[in-house]
Amino acid sequence: MGTMISQQLKERFQTLLGRYPVKRSALVPMLLFAQDEIGYVSEEIVEEICRTLDLPRIEVIEVVSYYTMLRRKPAGKFHLQVCTNVSCMLLGGESIYDHCRKRLGIENKQTTSDGTFSLEEVECIGACVGAPAAQINYDFYENLTPEKIDRIIESLTAQGK
């Protein structure tokens, strides 16, 4: 089963290449934008990027493995990233994270069996004055309580169907 690389993504790659005197510079943005579209850094993406940037596979993989946000397997449709760093921890971030674990029945970096949700305990996401906070995909959710998280999960579950 292959993941097709869309025309739009290929165009985005070309735009990126035009920005740098050294084309390798486009590597991290290419990986992130590809993951945004496909859901993870698939083998096809790695191959396409190797071709585009003239890089050996190992040099792409070593970069992928360095950056926390890049993943080699799909996450859930809704990737729930709960911050437990200091500002969030002081206002109950860890109990929000625990609540999500129990509610979804999954642990850190796992995905629910239906593929709807995945969970990750993350470091500071820059929402400290709205703590405790989380990001779902790229959206921010702040001033969380267990009840609020329940409502968000319920609403996303309905959306996910």
Partner: peptide, 22 residues
């Protein structure tokens, strides 16, 4: 230009390496 999750890249020389695709 976008990073992809690394506190270390806030350090200026690490940021430059990241900007060079490393």
């Amino acid at each position: 230009h976008t990073g992809a999750g690394a506190y270390e890249c806030g350090e200026e020389t690490a940021l430059l390496n990241s900007l060079e695709g490393l």
